[in-house]
């Protein structure tokens, strides 16, 4: 099986702090892969390395068979690798609908497209996706006026609007109320199965990630501690110790 995203021996340090050390990870096309680990174990640093937020120290990151570790953030995004943010980032002073419209992927990003009006089928697609995350009634509200949970859903819908090949989700359920989490897990599965989008998810909510992911990588102190299917990870002594702070 060829991996859609193939990370080999990636290391990244900030000054003397080693955030990632020799991390290797593979995400198969069409799969859902989880990344877990205690706070400060280097999960978000790994995400940032993948999307080109900062250069990596050593190693290789390949997406669709192409080395992307030297590319910049917008270039990687345009390849179809889109990330969401742990703190949730939306355009606060624009309505939910306009947030969606601007998130559409542009194939012809020339001068004509820049100065053209928004085509109606794009608006229809934006509304369909807003409906998908249950925000259709709120489409005319400013995104900054939505509740935190709703902003998370909007950010997901915006990412879907971009029609990515792969989505990197940084703690999609953090700060979302428990009732909403069930619906969100359901949506993420739908995104994977029906939209055919490969998912790489950082998650602290064990129930969620065990339910969603087919394969899980556990990081601790910047290093890969364990990897395997959820059932194995759950019973892995080292993982339990890392979370409980033993050893």
């Amino acid at each position: 099986m060829t991996a859609l995203l193939d990370i080999r021996n990636v290391s990244k340090s900030f000054g003397g702090v080693v955030a990632n050390k020799d991390v290797s990870l593979a995400v198969p096309a069409g799969g859902i892969v989880g990344v877990i680990g205690p706070n400060g174990s280097g999960k978000t640093t790994l995400f940032n390395s993948i999307v080109g937020y900062h250069p990596i120290g050593s190693g290789s990151i390949r997406f669709c068979g192409r080395e992307i570790s030297g590319l910049r953030v917008p270039e990687i995004a345009r390849l179809g690798l889109i990330r969401t943010f742990q703190q949730t980032r939306i355009y606060r002073n624009m309505t939910a609908m306009r947030n969606m419209l601007i998130s559409d992927r542009l194939r012809h990003d020339g001068l004509r497209a820049a100065f053209a009006k928004v085509p109606p089928q794009q608006a229809t697609r934006a509304e369909t996706l807003l409906d998908f995350v249950g925000l259709h009634e709120r489409r005319d509200l400013l995104a900054g006026e939505l509740s935190f949970g709703q902003q998370k859903l909007l950010e997901l819908a915006m990412a879907l609007m971009n029609q990515p090949t792969m989505l990197l989700l940084d703690e999609p359920t953090a700060g979302v109320n428990p009732t909403l989490i069930n619906g969100l897990v359901d949506r993420l599965r739908q995104v994977n199965l029906e939209f055919g989008i490969t998912l790489l998810i950082i998650e602290h909510n064990m129930r969620v990630i065990m339910e969603l992911a087919q394969h899980i990588y556990c990081l601790a102190h910047g290093e890969l501690l364990a990897s395997g299917p959820p059932s194995l990870i759950q019973t892995d002594r080292r993982v339990v110790d890392a979370y409980l702070g033993a050893g």
Partner: peptide, 14 residues
């Protein structure tokens, strides 16, 4: 407007 609200996000969206 997207640049005004969050330029980093705009870049992350390509």
């Amino acid at each position: 407007n997207a640049i005004r609200d969050d330029e980093g996000k705009a870049e992350a969206m390509g």
